[in-house]
Design a protein around this nucleic acid. Structure first.
Length: 272
DNA sequence: CTGCAGGCCCTTA
DNA sequence: TAAGGGCCTGCA
């Protein structure tokens, strides 16, 4: 069972490296394993003559019900890219060209919340390792709020959460008690969602924006981390002078292109 | 051995 | 409201 996906604005390798998701791994050259929403999927890159495409190892109905939505396939990224091109912003044009195939995944809200609390003051390989240990019981499933709440702060520290252990434990307990409602969060608009998220300990402006973007699909979210800050200062003369209102309803996608481009420039300086 | 990684909290002034 | 120190941990 396999589904062939022909889409110029989809590249599993770029998505895997974009840093929005911590559970997509390259298992061998040209082959990726995606774990999400209690499912595992193998995605292969392929090429037929000139035409590049991907093969999803799943049934058509699984693709339609799960993966199409997860990979945000209904959204027309080429029209969004056109809007970015239309700004004439030279830095963004480079970033967009470089980040071909990146999409904003529609990940599980709870998993995104915990993953990005863990991400603070942390590096990606360590974040991945911690999440792997968190999911050790059954690596297809991300532990529920009840499961995480049942761990002691010390259990969480043992798997490497450090000072974030209490944040994660408290978030889980708040959800379990109904004090913090994921359903309520889902129903909120962007700015209310940010305020609500920030009521959790260990969730500030940056993490809240990541959760809004990757877990709530609020494309107005624009997480500013050290990488983005660096870009805004170097290319635009500071955060205040970057005109985010140029990107109504798709600022978060712009942020992904910028982040990906900036990170690459550090990892492979020779190639820039 | 320091420094630092996709921040946040808390304390001061 | 702005600035600065401290924080878990692992790796260069």
């Amino acid at each position: 069972m396999a589904v062939e996906v022909f889409c110029g604005d989809f590249c599993i390798e770029q998505i895997a490296n974009s840093g929005q998701c911590f559970r997509i791994e390259r298992v061998s050259p040209g082959i990726w394993e995606v774990i999400a929403l209690g499912n595992r999927l193998i995605v292969r890159k392929n090429q037929l003559q000139e035409q590049k495409y991907h093969i999803f190892e799943c049934s058509q109905s699984e693709y339609d019900c799960i993966w199409s939505k997860y990979f945000d396939m209904p959204r027309d990224y080429s029209s969004i890219k056109d809007k970015i091109y239309a700004t004439g912003d030279p830095y963004l044009i480079q970033a967009v060209n470089f980040g071909y195939g990146i999409r904003i995944l529609q990940q599980d809200l709870w998993e995104v919340l915990i993953s990005f609390i863990i991400s603070q003051q942390n590096n990606i390989s360590r974040i991945k390792g911690i999440i792997k240990k968190l999911c050790a019981q059954n690596n297809l499933y991300f532990p529920s709020p009840e499961e995480i709440a049942s761990y002691s702060e010390n259990d969480l520290k043992k798997i490497g959460l450090g000072y974030r252990a209490s944040y994660v434990k408290n978030a889980a307990m708040s959800v379990c008690s109904g004090n913090f409602s994921l359903e309520k969060l889902r129903s909120m608009n962007y700015s209310n969602a940010i305020t609500y998220l920030k009521s959790l300990e260990g969730v500030g402006e940056k993490v809240a924006n990541c959760v809004a973007l990757f877990g709530l699909q609020k494309l107005d979210a624009f997480p500013i981390d050290v990488w983005i800050k660096r870009i805004l200062e170097r290319e635009y003369g500071g955060i205040e002078s970057f005109q985010i209102e140029r990107f109504p309803g798709f600022a978060g996608i712009v942020q992904q292109y910028m982040f990906f481009y900036e990170r690459f420039r550090r990892d492979c300086p020779k190639n820039t």
